[in-house]
């Protein structure tokens, strides 16, 4: 912060790029929710508040994001913990394995789930071989959730792992030498120190979930669509861009509110200070 003018100058190219190509167009889109053909209007916002379908979809988006993030953290944290105890070489191989699906396009990974979950897919064929009748997994909320977890899990694992590797292993050893059982050392020393990584992973996961589009569109049924899909319907089918903009505004506000809430919850907690969000 000492070299303020120089710092600002360094920021300028990125800020200009983001400002011109991202912030300005977004403001343009958002303004559609309050500006119609005849100037200022509250019509789209009133439509949003009065529309049951958008409230239902907003609520569903929120729950879907929450459950997916919780599942990701519950699955990702132990995996990261396991990896943090390995040798550097072995860990590098595992990180590579985790990144491998991450480099494959979301679209391809989503399509793969159709092959696995479909009525003539791997799961149902196996069930049929044992004499069971096919179960409808594809085109349900469950299918969307499974695929979202698979897509987002690498992010959570890697975020958890990064924070765990930052922890001074000497602290755990010290706790043990002072008489703590392995469980105590984990719960009282390691867990609190690694929580920031888990929370960051969970929050990133949650925010990414809020904007998911392809996965619910391809794997979900009519009751699985999320807010992005509803915006798409308003843009492409109903041509109701004001309403679409109002929905987009709502999505943005909810996302920002989630970030603010996270900040509030973690205020003053030292374990989050490394993120710069807890202060």
């Amino acid at each position: 912060m000492k070299n303020r003018p120089t710092t600002l100058l360094l920021l300028l190219p990125a800020a200009l790029l983001v400002g011109l190509l991202f912030v300005l167009p977004i403001l343009g889109v958002l303004s559609l929710s309050v500006y119609g053909d005849s100037g200022f209007t509250l019509g789209p916002i009133r439509e949003l508040v009065g529309s049951r379908v958008s409230l239902v979809v907003l609520e569903r988006t929120f729950w879907q994001a929450l459950t997916v993030s919780v599942i990701c953290v519950v699955l990702g944290y132990p995996a990261a913990f396991f990896m943090s105890g390995l040798s550097t070489k072995l860990r590098a191989y595992l990180v590579y394995l985790i990144l491998l699906p991450f480099w494959i396009s979301i679209l391809v990974r989503t399509y793969t789930w159709i092959i696995i979950l479909g009525r003539e897919g791997i799961i149902n064929r196996t069930l049929a071989a044992f004499g069971f009748s096919p179960v409808q997994i594809l085109y349900t909320d469950l299918a969307v959730r499974i695929a979202m977890v698979q897509i987002l899990l690498p992010i959570v694992v890697l975020t958890c792992l990064a924070s765990m590797l930052d922890i001074d292993k000497g602290l755990v050893k010290t706790a043990r030498s002072l008489g703590a059982t392995p469980t105590q050392a984990f719960v009282k020393v390691f867990l609190p120190l690694s929580l920031s990584g888990a929370a960051t992973g969970g929050i990133i996961c949650f925010i990414l979930c809020l904007g998911f589009y392809v996965t619910p569109a391809l794997l979900g049924g009519r009751r699985s669509i999320l807010i992005s899909n509803l915006i798409d319907i308003q843009v492409h089918q109903s041509l109701n861009w004001g309403f679409a903009a109002a929905l987009a505004t709502a999505l943005l506000i909810i996302t920002l509110a989630c970030l603010a809430l996270f900040r509030l919850l973690t205020r003053g907690r030292t374990e989050f200070s490394s993120l710069g969000v807890g202060r």
């Binding site: 159709i114 009525r119 003539e120 409808q136 594809l138 085109y139 349900t140 569109a217 049924g221 009519r222």
Partner: peptide, 20 residues
């Protein structure tokens, strides 16, 4: 009785051919 509502021509072909 309709688990999926198709969005484009390629999709309804796939649904039928895959036996979905």
């Amino acid at each position: 009785h309709i688990p999926v509502w198709w969005e484009n021509g390629a999709q309804h072909v796939q649904l039928l051919v895959d036996g979905e």
